[in-house]
């Protein structure tokens, strides 16, 4: 500050020298000297040009009341404007945005969890289905095998019956045929004997055939 005031003094003095004005002769400056006892010394060298006073303006008490009044009015208005309108408005914008971002993040987290749950459910369903498929395949295989076995058993049983029936029929036929052979043989033998010996009964021929058969 000290260096600066020296500058001011130098410039101020240079000014007054240039103009050739002797400051104290100025009536306003003298008046300023009266009431500006606490103001800056440099201002006295200057010579007043303003309506308010010749004193160093920032320290001039004659301007104090007016500045205080207007400061009170303007700063009061500013405070009201800020506290009632501007700051709540900006604050609500920021809060809304913060709430929105937090809400969105929570929503994203919720959706992520939901996705994970769905993925887990899908995996479980897949495993279940695979297990079921195996069981069904096994069951089907078993039932088909059982079916095949049953049918084969049925078929085999049917075949066996028919074979034994056929064998029985064959045996019966054979027996009948054999019996006919004996009859034919007896007839033939009687005829042969009758031709050779003259007589032989059918009973004697039959006995002879039976003896031959036994023999």
């Amino acid at each position: 500050m000290a260096g600066l005031t020296q500058d001011i003094i130098i410039v101020a003095q240079a000014d007054s020298l240039q103009e050739g004005v002797v400051a104290p002769a100025n009536e306003q400056a003298a008046e300023a000297g009266e009431h500006a006892t606490d103001t800056h010394a440099t201002t006295e060298a200057h010579g007043g040009e303003e309506a308010h006073s010749a004193a160093f303006p920032p320290f001039d008490p004659s301007g104090f009341a007016g500045q205080l009044l207007w400061l009170a009015i303007t700063f009061g208005a500013l405070y009201l404007l800020m506290s009632r309108v501007a700051l709540p408005q900006i604050g609500s914008i920021i809060d809304t945005r913060r709430a929105r971002i937090e809400g969105d993040l929570a929503e994203a987290e919720r959706l992520r969890k939901e996705t994970e749950k769905a993925a887990a459910a899908y995996e479980a369903a897949l495993a279940e289905a695979r297990k079921n498929a195996q069981a069904i395949a096994e069951e089907t295989r078993v039932s088909i095998k059982a079916d095949i076995d049953n049918r084969r058993a049925d078929v085999e049983a049917g075949l066996t019956t028919r074979i034994s029936e056929a064998e029985a029929r064959i045996a019966a036929t054979k027996t009948a045929a054999l019996a006919n052979v004996d009859e034919i043989a007896a007839d033939t033998a009687q005829a042969v004997v009758a031709r050779v010996t003259g007589d032989a009964t059918l009973e004697e021929a039959r006995d002879a055939v039976a003896i031959v058969n036994r023999g």
Partner: peptide
Amino acid sequence: TNSSLFMVLTTGLIG
């Protein structure tokens, strides 16, 4: 004054 004017301008601009 000019000071009052700039106080008013200051408040006005900010608001």
